[in-house]
């Protein structure tokens, strides 16, 4: 699109959206948000990038092929599920590690569930971008 304003604005907006999407992802377990919503928001950032500056720039900014991101996300989600096997639990049983745990406060939680959600994020992000980029390149 031939809009200077959009093109310039996009650079900042894209970063902002990705940042915001990560925020939605991390807080998703306790507040509205999560991998889906995060991934969707993150992808809109790059969709905007692609609309404004063309897919070539967007692909350069992304560095990795979106399909690989998506498939990698699927792998991460799967591994997060399989991880439970090391503890003798069933597939997709959440494994939690609480850093700085006190009796009152659970501290900072690190869990397979979070990794699963990250996988979801990457899948949604990568998938939408691979469709949109491919479509854009057909026009």
């Amino acid at each position: 699109m031939n809009s200077i304003i959009l093109r310039v604005g996009t650079r900042y907006l894209c970063g902002l959206l990705v940042l915001f999407s990560l925020y939605m992802l991390i807080r998703g377990h306790n507040e509205p948000g999560g991998g889906f919503i995060g991934g969707l928001i993150g992808s809109t950032g790059f969709v905007l990038f692609a609309l404004a500056c063309g897919t070539a720039d967007a692909r350069n900014a992304l560095k990795i092929m979106p399909q690989n991101i998506a498939m990698g996300g699927l792998g991460i989600a799967l591994l997060a599920g399989i991880f439970a096997a090391f503890f003798g639990d069933a597939l997709f049983t959440g494994q939690w590690l609480f850093i700085n745990e006190t009796p009152d406060d659970k501290g900072i939680p690190i869990s397979t569930v979070l990794f699963f959600d990250i996988g979801v994020y990457l899948v949604v992000f990568g998938s939408i971008l691979s469709i949109v980029f491919a479509m854009e390149e057909e026009i």
């Binding site: 979106p66 399909q67 699927l74 899948v123 990568g126 998938s127 691979s130 469709i131 479509m135």
Partner: peptide, 9 residues
């Protein structure tokens, strides 16, 4: 979702 993307691609 992944497969939809791959298929569409």
């Amino acid at each position: 979702v992944v497969i939809a993307a791959l298929s569409a691609y």
